Amino acid sequence: MTGALAPERGIELFLRHVSIERGLSPNTVAAYRRDLAAYAAWLDEAGVADLGAVDPARLRAYQGALADREPPLTPASVTRALSSVRSLHRFHHEEGTLAEDAGARLRAPKRAQTLPKAISIE
């Protein structure tokens, strides 16, 4: 592991990776950017200036903050945001810039299943 990795720098490296190396669509990269900007702001408010200092407990706290947010996020939006954060941490762990993948065991909340609509007789 090499020194501290500021969240903003880590996010920019990740976004460059997904847009250039993985060739993801501009809309997908924009969604990652929005999700990770909110994550970076939350880390900043929590006083975390190094992605290496994020542990699973801190990620669970972020998950709770997403669930308690006003206006509330839909379960699908919470799941997408957590997926973005897990991808960020996994990328940096695989690149060797983070010693631990803090998001490896983080699971998104189960989405409620809806019953199918009944077909009318007509």
Results as ranks from 00 to 15, higher is better:
49 A>F: 10
68 D>Q: 13
102 A>K: 10
106 L>N: 11
120 S>C: 12
46 A>T: 01
73 L>Q: 09
91 F>E: 02
103 G>K: 08
110 K>F: 10
13 L>W: 10
59 L>C: 01
97 T>P: 06
71 P>T: 00
9 R>K: 15
21 E>I: 04
76 A>C: 00
79 T>L: 05
106 L>S: 12
89 H>N: 06
116 P>N: 11
61 A>S: 11
57 A>Y: 13
115 L>P: 02
79 T>G: 03
13 L>S: 09
29 V>G: 01
39 Y>V: 00
106 L>K: 11
28 T>M: 08
107 R>A: 15
88 L>P: 01
66 L>G: 07
54 V>R: 00
83 S>P: 03
41 A>C: 14
69 R>G: 04
95 E>P: 12
24 L>R: 03
90 R>D: 05
73 L>S: 03
112 A>G: 10
68 D>R: 15
28 T>Y: 05
114 T>K: 14
15 L>A: 11
95 E>L: 14
110 K>C: 13
31 A>K: 13
29 V>C: 01
28 T>K: 06
116 P>E: 14
85 V>A: 10
114 T>N: 11
92 H>G: 09
36 L>R: 00
112 A>V: 12
35 D>G: 01
12 E>Y: 06
101 D>Y: 11
108 A>P: 06
91 F>N: 02
92 H>F: 09
20 I>M: 06
30 A>W: 05
65 A>V: 08
37 A>I: 05
15 L>R: 11
51 L>P: 05
117 K>P: 13
36 L>W: 00
94 E>M: 12
78 V>W: 09
64 G>D: 15
94 E>N: 14
109 P>Q: 04
20 I>E: 08
96 G>D: 02
77 S>W: 15
15 L>H: 09
100 E>W: 02
111 R>I: 14
20 I>F: 09
32 Y>D: 10
113 Q>N: 06
105 R>G: 13
73 L>I: 09
7 P>K: 12
72 P>W: 03
12 E>K: 07
81 A>K: 04
54 V>G: 00
55 D>R: 10
24 L>I: 04
13 L>D: 07
7 P>F: 11
16 R>C: 05
43 L>W: 02
84 S>N: 04
17 H>E: 05
117 K>Q: 15
107 R>N: 10
67 A>Q: 08
23 G>E: 07
45 E>H: 11
72 P>M: 02
91 F>D: 01
115 L>D: 03
62 Y>C: 06
93 H>R: 14
